[in-house]
Design a protein around this nucleic acid. Structure first.
Length: 217
DNA sequence: CCATTAAGATACT
DNA sequence: AGTATCTTAATGG
Protein backbone atom coordinates (compact mmCIF):
# COMPACT_ATOMS: atom_id res chain seq x y z
CA UNK A 1 0.00 0.00 0.00
CA UNK A 2 2.74 2.40 0.99
CA UNK A 3 4.47 1.36 -2.19
CA UNK A 4 1.43 2.31 -4.27
CA UNK A 5 1.31 5.73 -2.70
CA UNK A 6 4.94 6.29 -3.57
CA UNK A 7 4.34 5.29 -7.15
CA UNK A 8 1.39 7.63 -7.26
CA UNK A 9 3.51 10.46 -5.95
CA UNK A 10 6.14 9.76 -8.54
CA UNK A 11 3.65 9.87 -11.37
CA UNK A 12 2.14 13.07 -10.02
CA UNK A 13 5.54 14.66 -9.79
CA UNK A 14 6.08 14.07 -13.48
CA UNK A 15 3.67 16.76 -14.36
CA UNK A 16 1.62 18.21 -11.54
CA UNK A 17 4.42 19.19 -9.27
CA UNK A 18 4.74 22.53 -11.07
CA UNK A 19 1.04 23.13 -10.84
CA UNK A 20 0.07 22.13 -7.32
CA UNK A 21 1.59 23.07 -3.99
CA UNK A 22 3.19 20.36 -1.92
CA UNK A 23 0.40 20.01 0.64
CA UNK A 24 -2.14 19.57 -2.14
CA UNK A 25 -0.01 16.88 -3.80
CA UNK A 26 0.07 15.15 -0.41
CA UNK A 27 -3.70 15.17 -0.20
CA UNK A 28 -4.08 13.92 -3.77
CA UNK A 29 -1.75 11.03 -3.03
CA UNK A 30 -3.74 10.32 0.08
CA UNK A 31 -7.27 10.19 -1.37
CA UNK A 32 -6.69 9.66 -5.09
CA UNK A 33 -7.29 6.33 -6.74
CA UNK A 34 -4.95 5.34 -9.53
CA UNK A 35 -6.48 3.74 -12.59
CA UNK A 36 -5.25 2.85 -16.05
CA UNK A 37 -7.22 2.36 -19.24
CA UNK A 38 -6.44 0.61 -22.48
CA UNK A 39 -7.21 2.05 -25.89
CA UNK A 40 -10.90 1.88 -26.67
CA UNK A 41 -12.09 1.71 -23.06
CA UNK A 42 -14.53 4.24 -21.68
CA UNK A 43 -13.35 6.65 -19.03
CA UNK A 44 -16.86 7.98 -18.69
CA UNK A 45 -20.07 7.37 -20.59
CA UNK A 46 -23.14 9.48 -21.24
CA UNK A 47 -25.48 9.18 -18.30
CA UNK A 48 -22.86 8.10 -15.79
CA UNK A 49 -23.18 9.40 -12.28
CA UNK A 50 -20.08 11.34 -11.49
CA UNK A 51 -18.56 10.51 -8.16
CA UNK A 52 -14.94 11.27 -8.98
CA UNK A 53 -13.07 13.48 -11.37
CA UNK A 54 -10.03 12.22 -13.24
CA UNK A 55 -6.66 13.93 -13.43
CA UNK A 56 -4.94 12.70 -16.57
CA UNK A 57 -1.36 11.65 -15.90
CA UNK A 58 -0.62 10.58 -19.46
CA UNK A 59 -2.35 9.24 -22.54
CA UNK A 60 -5.26 10.79 -24.38
CA UNK A 61 -9.04 10.70 -24.05
CA UNK A 62 -11.45 11.69 -26.77
CA UNK A 63 -14.49 13.53 -25.51
CA UNK A 64 -17.60 13.25 -27.62
CA UNK A 65 -21.26 14.16 -27.43
CA UNK A 66 -23.80 11.88 -29.03
CA UNK A 67 -27.20 13.00 -30.24
CA UNK A 68 -30.39 11.01 -30.80
CA UNK A 69 -29.48 9.84 -34.29
CA UNK A 70 -26.30 8.29 -32.90
CA UNK A 71 -24.20 10.92 -34.60
CA UNK A 72 -21.15 11.79 -32.61
CA UNK A 73 -19.63 15.20 -32.28
CA UNK A 74 -15.98 15.27 -31.41
CA UNK A 75 -15.51 18.01 -28.86
CA UNK A 76 -11.90 17.84 -27.76
CA UNK A 77 -9.15 15.63 -26.42
CA UNK A 78 -7.90 15.43 -22.87
CA UNK A 79 -4.19 14.96 -22.45
CA UNK A 80 -1.50 14.94 -19.80
CA UNK A 81 -2.10 17.36 -16.99
CA UNK A 82 -5.70 18.03 -17.91
CA UNK A 83 -8.98 17.13 -16.36
CA UNK A 84 -12.54 17.01 -17.50
CA UNK A 85 -13.70 20.18 -15.83
CA UNK A 86 -17.15 19.59 -17.20
CA UNK A 87 -17.35 16.50 -15.04
CA UNK A 88 -16.35 18.76 -12.21
CA UNK A 89 -19.66 20.62 -12.36
CA UNK A 90 -21.49 17.35 -12.82
CA UNK A 91 -19.93 16.24 -9.58
CA UNK A 92 -20.87 19.30 -7.62
CA UNK A 93 -24.51 19.33 -8.62
CA UNK A 94 -24.57 15.54 -8.84
CA UNK A 95 -25.95 15.45 -12.34
CA UNK A 96 -25.13 12.88 -14.98
CA UNK A 97 -22.40 13.09 -17.56
CA UNK A 98 -23.38 14.65 -20.86
CA UNK A 99 -20.30 13.33 -22.56
CA UNK A 100 -18.51 10.16 -23.41
CA UNK A 101 -14.79 9.85 -22.89
CA UNK A 102 -13.14 7.23 -25.09
CA UNK A 103 -9.54 6.35 -24.37
CA UNK A 104 -7.42 6.87 -27.49
CA UNK A 105 -4.08 5.79 -26.08
CA UNK A 106 -3.17 3.87 -22.99
CA UNK A 107 -4.11 6.36 -20.28
CA UNK A 108 -3.27 6.66 -16.62
CA UNK A 109 -5.22 8.87 -14.30
CA UNK A 110 -6.02 9.59 -10.70
CA UNK A 111 -9.61 9.77 -9.58
CA UNK A 112 -10.40 12.33 -6.92
CA UNK A 113 -13.59 11.85 -4.90
CA UNK A 114 -16.02 14.71 -5.15
CA UNK A 115 -16.24 15.37 -1.46
CA UNK A 116 -12.70 16.73 -1.59
CA UNK A 117 -12.75 18.89 -4.63
CA UNK A 118 -15.13 21.53 -3.31
CA UNK A 119 -13.17 21.91 -0.15
CA UNK A 120 -9.92 22.17 -2.09
CA UNK A 121 -11.36 25.10 -4.04
CA UNK A 122 -11.37 27.09 -0.85
CA UNK A 123 -8.25 25.63 0.64
CA UNK A 124 -5.83 25.73 -2.29
CA UNK A 125 -5.20 28.62 -4.62
CA UNK A 126 -3.41 26.36 -7.13
CA UNK A 127 -6.40 24.02 -7.27
CA UNK A 128 -8.74 26.94 -7.87
CA UNK A 129 -6.57 28.22 -10.69
CA UNK A 130 -6.19 24.78 -12.19
CA UNK A 131 -9.94 24.22 -12.35
CA UNK A 132 -10.65 27.67 -13.77
CA UNK A 133 -7.87 27.35 -16.37
CA UNK A 134 -9.13 23.94 -17.28
CA UNK A 135 -12.60 25.34 -17.82
CA UNK A 136 -11.21 28.11 -19.93
CA UNK A 137 -9.19 25.70 -22.08
CA UNK A 138 -12.16 23.43 -22.70
CA UNK A 139 -14.30 26.39 -23.66
CA UNK A 140 -11.71 27.66 -26.14
CA UNK A 141 -11.41 24.25 -27.68
CA UNK A 142 -15.15 23.91 -28.05
CA UNK A 143 -15.44 27.31 -29.69
CA UNK A 144 -12.72 26.20 -32.09
CA UNK A 145 -14.60 22.96 -32.77
CA UNK A 146 -17.71 24.97 -33.62
CA UNK A 147 -15.78 27.37 -35.84
CA UNK A 148 -14.21 24.47 -37.67
CA UNK A 149 -17.58 22.82 -38.21
CA UNK A 150 -19.32 25.96 -39.34
CA UNK A 151 -16.75 27.68 -41.50
CA UNK A 152 -14.22 25.25 -42.88
CA UNK A 153 -14.63 22.62 -45.54
CA UNK A 154 -13.95 18.96 -45.11
CA UNK A 155 -10.45 18.79 -46.54
CA UNK A 156 -9.28 21.43 -44.07
CA UNK A 157 -10.97 19.55 -41.27
CA UNK A 158 -9.21 16.35 -42.29
CA UNK A 159 -5.83 18.07 -42.23
CA UNK A 160 -6.56 19.53 -38.83
CA UNK A 161 -7.71 16.14 -37.61
CA UNK A 162 -4.55 14.41 -38.82
CA UNK A 163 -2.31 17.02 -37.23
CA UNK A 164 -4.19 16.54 -33.96
CA UNK A 165 -3.84 12.77 -34.20
CA UNK A 166 -0.08 13.00 -34.75
CA UNK A 167 0.17 15.19 -31.66
CA UNK A 168 -1.88 12.84 -29.53
CA UNK A 169 -0.30 9.61 -30.69
CA UNK A 170 3.15 11.18 -30.68
CA UNK A 171 3.70 9.38 -33.95
CA UNK A 172 3.46 10.26 -37.63
CA UNK A 173 2.37 6.72 -38.39
CA UNK A 174 -1.29 6.53 -37.47
CA UNK A 175 -3.13 3.25 -37.10
CA UNK A 176 -6.51 4.38 -38.18
CA UNK A 177 -9.07 3.43 -40.81
CA UNK A 178 -10.85 5.75 -43.19
CA UNK A 179 -14.09 4.72 -41.55
CA UNK A 180 -12.89 5.85 -38.13
CA UNK A 181 -11.91 9.22 -39.51
CA UNK A 182 -15.31 9.47 -41.18
CA UNK A 183 -17.04 8.73 -37.87
CA UNK A 184 -15.04 11.37 -36.04
CA UNK A 185 -15.76 14.02 -38.65
CA UNK A 186 -19.35 12.90 -39.26
CA UNK A 187 -18.67 12.16 -42.88
CA UNK A 188 -18.73 8.99 -44.95
CA UNK A 189 -15.93 6.57 -45.72
CA UNK A 190 -15.97 7.12 -49.48
CA UNK A 191 -15.61 10.85 -49.11
CA UNK A 192 -12.75 10.53 -46.65
CA UNK A 193 -11.02 8.06 -48.97
CA UNK A 194 -11.32 10.51 -51.85
CA UNK A 195 -9.82 13.37 -49.92
CA UNK A 196 -7.06 11.24 -48.40
CA UNK A 197 -6.17 10.07 -51.90
CA UNK A 198 -5.77 13.69 -52.94
CA UNK A 199 -3.47 14.33 -49.98
CA UNK A 200 -1.44 11.31 -50.98
CA UNK A 201 -1.09 12.52 -54.56
CA UNK A 202 0.11 15.85 -53.17
CA UNK A 203 2.73 13.88 -51.22
CA UNK A 204 1.30 15.13 -47.92
CA UNK A 205 0.54 11.66 -46.57
CA UNK A 206 1.17 8.02 -47.40
CA UNK A 207 -1.75 5.60 -47.30
CA UNK A 208 -1.86 1.97 -46.25
CA UNK A 209 -4.38 -0.51 -44.99
CA UNK A 210 -5.44 0.38 -41.45
CA UNK A 211 -2.70 2.95 -41.30
CA UNK A 212 -1.45 6.16 -42.77
CA UNK A 213 1.69 8.19 -42.48
CA UNK A 214 1.68 11.94 -42.23
CA UNK A 215 4.54 13.38 -44.25
CA UNK A 216 3.94 17.11 -44.33
CA UNK A 217 0.70 18.99 -43.87
C1' DC B 1 -7.21 -21.85 -49.19
C1' DC B 2 -11.44 -19.04 -47.64
C1' DA B 3 -13.95 -15.49 -44.84
C1' DT B 4 -13.78 -11.00 -43.41
C1' DT B 5 -13.19 -6.37 -44.10
C1' DA B 6 -10.60 -2.01 -45.51
C1' DA B 7 -10.28 0.72 -49.21
C1' DG B 8 -10.52 1.80 -54.36
C1' DA B 9 -13.67 2.77 -58.33
C1' DT B 10 -17.74 4.25 -60.59
C1' DA B 11 -22.06 6.19 -61.18
C1' DC B 12 -25.82 8.83 -59.52
C1' DT B 13 -28.07 12.39 -56.46
C1' DA C 1 -20.40 16.02 -50.39
C1' DG C 2 -22.89 11.93 -49.79
C1' DT C 3 -25.09 7.22 -51.00
C1' DA C 4 -25.26 2.83 -53.25
C1' DT C 5 -22.92 -0.79 -55.22
C1' DC C 6 -19.25 -3.41 -57.04
C1' DT C 7 -14.41 -4.66 -57.18
C1' DT C 8 -9.86 -5.36 -55.34
C1' DA C 9 -6.66 -6.44 -51.93
C1' DA C 10 -4.86 -7.33 -47.32
C1' DT C 11 -5.14 -10.13 -43.21
C1' DG C 12 -5.69 -13.95 -40.25
C1' DG C 13 -7.30 -18.38 -39.38
Amino acid sequence: MENNKNQLREKLNDYFTNIFEKSLIDEIVDVGKFKSFKKGELLVDIGDEMTHIPLILNGAVKIIRENKNKDEILLYYLERGQTCSISFVNCINQSKSMFRGVVENYTECIFIPINRIENWLIKYKTWREYIIDSYHDRLIEMVEAIRSLAFTNLDERIKKYLIEQVKIKQNKNLNITHQEIADDLNSSRVVISRLLKKLEIDKKIKLGRNKLKVIKL
